[in-house]
């Protein structure tokens, strides 16, 4: 299938209806994190889930729109990270297509790759746009590395690797369990239903 055809296959009415729900899951997941006082963000469960159920391009668009909407209603600083979320969705979708969400072990590999991609894409944004600072706690790690004489780029990359990796491993694990436990009646409606 050529790229335009594949794109068309991913953006059916059904998957377009799934996207707002996925974006809302990304945002609302934060409520549970606050209630359970967990030191992670978990803001891409919906994106990864679209990657598993529908495919890479739908997930990429979901991720990017999620950040734009997050920027609109909560924190404008989130908007530039739409690029990061785009690539997180893309990675998750491609991995799902290759079967990397079929077992729990494989979805951990996916989580690792997604975390790595996330850190690679967000580092230049943090460094060049925001002078190395984000509103999350990982900034303290960045500051510590800078204080020990490391370069800004290296410091930001290492701190986002540390914080993103744990986050994306958990995200991938949860997305795997949800996709697997969806009723067959729901899962079979999506194009990439063999993903998990």
């Amino acid at each position: 299938m050529s790229l335009p055809e594949r794109l068309k296959g991913e953006f059916t009415t059904l998957s377009l209806v799934l996207m707002p729900i996925a974006i809302a899951i990304n945002i609302v997941g934060g409520i549970f994190i606050v209630a359970l006082k967990l030191p992670i963000y978990l803001d891409s469960i919906g994106t990864v889930l679209v990657g598993i159920l529908v495919g890479p391009w739908a997930a990429a668009v979901t991720g990017a729109l999620a950040n734009i909407i997050w920027g609109l209603i909560m924190d404008p600083v989130a908007m530039p990270f739409a690029i990061t979320s785009f690539f997180i969705g893309l990675t998750a979708g491609f991995l799902a297509k290759k079967g990397y969400f079929q077992t729990f072990g494989k979805s951990m590999i996916s989580g690792f790759c997604i975390g790595l991609v996330g850190a690679i894409v967000s580092t230049p944004i943090v460094v060049y746009l925001f002078g190395g600072v984000t509103s999350s706690g990982s900034t303290f790690i960045t500051a510590y590395l800078l204080a020990t004489g490391k370069q800004l780029f290296f410091s930001v990359f290492s701190s986002s690797m540390l914080s993103d990796l744990a986050d994306k491993l958990i995200t991938a694990g949860i997305a795997f369990y949800i996709a697997r436990n969806l009723p067959e009646r729901i899962r079979s409606r999506f194009s990439q239903s063999t993903g998990a």
Partner: peptide, 23 residues
């Protein structure tokens, strides 16, 4: 962390259920 799954699960399954109707 374990509690997380019992919270997110119902949220997702419940809302995805509505997807077909909306479509």
């Amino acid at each position: 962390a374990k509690a997380l799954l019992s919270l997110i699960g119902p949220l997702v399954v419940g809302t995805i259920n509505d997807v077909q109707d909306r479509a």
